[in-house]
Amino acid sequence: MNFTSKIHDIIIYKLKQRVIFLEERLQKFLARSGIASRRKCEELIKEGTIKVNGVTVTDMGIKIDSKKDVISYKDKVITINGEKVYIILNKPCGYITTTKEQFNRKKVTDLISGISIRVYPVGRLDYDTSGLLILTNDGDLTYKLTHPAHEVNKTYIAEVIGIPDESKLDKLRQGIPIEDYVTSPAQVNIIDKNKSTAILEITIHEGKNRQVRKMCSAIGHEVKNLKRAAIGNLKLNDLALGKWRYLSEEEINYLRTL
């Protein structure tokens, strides 16, 4: 074992042995600092981009004292900014909800201007899906709204090809097999229809990749257009496509109760 490895092991050992003064897990601190969601921060730790007191840490169990330890991301020291920002955006199609893009596609953060604090999307909306998206630097709220255990309802308006009958809708209401999982029961209603398409209102609390599209495809009705209309009781109301606004204090407090 070389000298660097010994120093690394000593630091990791001391971090694990602290009991009284440890304040929080490393990934929670990172999320609270606004780096990304807690889930994404766990990925950053695994990738070896986080250092504690100058030593790369990849252990999910590490706890830190933010008043004593120096935490860095890609060698840039992380500090907690006390100001939290909460934004609601009416996302257009053709934008991605990641903050990094290697194919030069447009990002939702490109639509946010006039604020100096970096914000991050809460969860994801597909490239070709529009609608309600929350952006914030509050890692704890992001974790709460995106973690499956909290079962936060999301309502979508889906225009599908063809008119599904009640037996097909009941399959969605009961939970339907998709790839390697079965969806939780959804709330589904037809709110409009014509000769060739129907407009469905679908409420789910999961957030798996392209889930609503896959659900509709599983009953034989491909999605033509998809929009997220609400998260819980939070709605877009008259917010124009591509526009954003700050959430009110009442709306923020509501999201914290979900």
Rank of each mutant, 00 (worst) to 15 (best):
K6S: 10
I7Y: 06
D9M: 14
D9I: 08
Y13Q: 15
K14I: 12
L15D: 05
Q17H: 14
R18V: 06
L22H: 12
K28L: 08
K28Y: 11
A31T: 01
I35N: 00
I35W: 07
K40V: 13
K40C: 04
N53L: 05
G54L: 12
G54K: 11
G54S: 12
G61N: 12
I62P: 02
K63W: 11
D65H: 14
K67H: 11
D69Q: 13
S72R: 12
K76Y: 14
N81P: 05
I87H: 02
I87N: 11
I87T: 10
Y95V: 14
T97W: 02
T99K: 09
K100I: 13
K107M: 12
I115N: 02
I117F: 15
L125E: 05
I134H: 02
I134Y: 00
L145Y: 10
P148Y: 09
V152A: 04
N153K: 15
T155N: 08
G162W: 07
P164Y: 06
K171L: 08
Q174M: 12
I176E: 01
T183K: 02
I190L: 03
S196H: 14
I204Y: 07
E206Q: 10
K208E: 00
K214Q: 12
S217V: 05
A218P: 02
I219Q: 00
V223N: 01
N225I: 04
K227M: 01
K235G: 08
L236T: 00
L239C: 01
G242F: 08
K243F: 15
E250T: 13
I252M: 05
